[in-house]
Nucleic acid binder design. Structure first.
Lengths: 268, 268
DNA sequence: AGAATAGTGTCTTTCAGACAATATATG
DNA sequence: CATATATTGTCTGAAAGACACTATTCT
């Protein structure tokens, strides 16, 4: 009886159909004191002409991490950036064509490293700033809850083009909302913000604060921010002073260098 | 040129092979003041005879959330428990047979609800307590880093059977370590602990503290724990007093009832 | 000097942790 | 009363947030 039951379970025909597996990459950057996300305009059905998160199929000889790294290299021409898995989206009808499971990744890229216009430019790509993401992320289940609020999100493109969450392809509005909330939640107990610095060997605390402010979408107290960062990072040697800035308006700022703790480097 | 490049990319043969997708469920419970995990003994190759996390193939007509709920129903006979996605493991060689991607889920189940022995019992199943998980989870990448430390984990079965991380099937030691660290990290800013209560409509703060202590694997100050929980939960009405305990040793404790905030229920 | 930006100091409130003291049950 | 458990109170130090003040550059 037992082996029969097991037999049936093992030979259920549906188990032999495999869903497609894709990797989607949310490429974030901070420029002009705003958090921005790279989107591409779809040139295929479905959602032809809609803006979407770049992605691609997972190949059989690469892990999802590797696929994400490959895809960001292809799409934005960058390597060695911070990349972390965000969530896996698997609702049955999230893609109208066929069953597609998407492993979403979040990348933090300094604006100066992004070369999405320099490439062949097969698709139209643009950076969008993100507004209208509110509320707590505590305990939310990304796939079941976020759709309502995600649709009121407003993205602003380079020419002032406005896109709402519900204008985006697939379930991408919810994915973006999940990513922004994840970043906000992790900002103050991880090194996430440093991934946006143009030069981790020479930056000012004001530059770092602008990154925090862009992610949180609110201004931070200058003095308190300095105190907190210096206490957290300087005491443990993870940031060290590198001398004063030169040739700037106003008082020159102290430059810092960030020492990435061993074990958190980007895997190749 | 561009469409040719795109053509090649779209028709790369590897994109048409699809990996297998499974869902693994880490079924945690707290009994006898210890955090315990349900493992099954494999009755197939590879890793025949080794202990493993229960799992199953994702069917084409169900989301990963649904597959996880189905699988926990089949394996442990429980429904309506807290279930959250943990991480997706996708290393190319994590399964020696074929390419398998596993979406891992974490379930919190009251010990009294677990009926893994009452079922057909196709496989041997047992609850293991977990020791030897240390270190911070801050910013760690589950798939790249945890293997070394995960192997020194020690699991203790019902008859005192000892199993180390490296005795487990597949990459399951690393998955377990990721899960325990996730639980520890989320414990104090989510409602995770309440998922382990036998009766969320009638529990004492001491019972709740035992759950926290089991997950953190350290004792907590009685007074400070009470103060913190009451401040966090009683002011917002998420726990309410329900009268005194009866027929117990020592002073009777106040019984509380937990009101799950709308929007965090287990999906059907 | 005045504008602009960088950096320090202080005060209050909140909160975590250590630990002492009190309360209410059973035997 | 002794024992066992529950509950409250107090003290201290760390840290967040609000906000005022000082410092160093350029024009």
């Amino acid at each position: 009886m037992q082996s029969e039951q097991q037999y049936l379970q093992n030979y259920d025909p549906s188990q032999f159909e495999h869903p497609s597996v894709t990797v989607d990459i949310l490429i974030f950057t901070v420029s002009d004191r705003k958090l921005r996300l790279l989107l591409i305009r779809r040139n295929e059905h479905p959602y032809l002409g809609k803006w979407a998160i770049p992605g691609g199929f997972l190949r059989m000889d690469e892990s999802a991490d590797e696929a994400a790294a490959r895809r960001i290299r292809e799409e934005a021409g960058v390597e060695n950036v911070h990349l972390e898995q965000l969530y896996t989206f698997s609702a049955v009808n999230r893609d109208p064509r066929t069953r597609v499971i998407s492993i979403a990744y979040l990348a933090t890229v300094p604006a100066g490293k992004l070369h999405f216009l320099a490439g062949a430019g097969a698709e139209e790509a643009a950076l969008f700033s993100i507004d209208g993401i509110t509320g707590e992320s505590v305990g939310e289940q990304p796939e079941t809850l976020q759709s309502r609020t995600a649709e009121s999100m407003i993205l602003t493109g380079p020419d002032g083009e406005l896109v709402t969450g519900s204008d985006l392809a697939f379930d991408h509005a919810g994915i973006i909302r999940t990513a922004v909330q994840r970043m906000r939640g992790k900002l103050d107990y991880t090194d996430l913000a440093f991934g946006f610095l143009e030069d981790t060997d020479s930056f000012t605390l004001t530059e770092l604060r602008f990154i925090h402010e862009a992610i949180l979408d609110r201004s931070l107290d200058i003095g308190n921010f300095r105190r907190t960062i210096k206490r957290e990072y300087e005491a443990s040697g993870r940031i060290v002073e590198q001398g004063l800035e030169k040739g700037c308006v106003g008082r020159p700022a102290m430059l810092y260098s960030f020492i990435r703790p061993s074990g958190s480097g980007t895997k190749d």
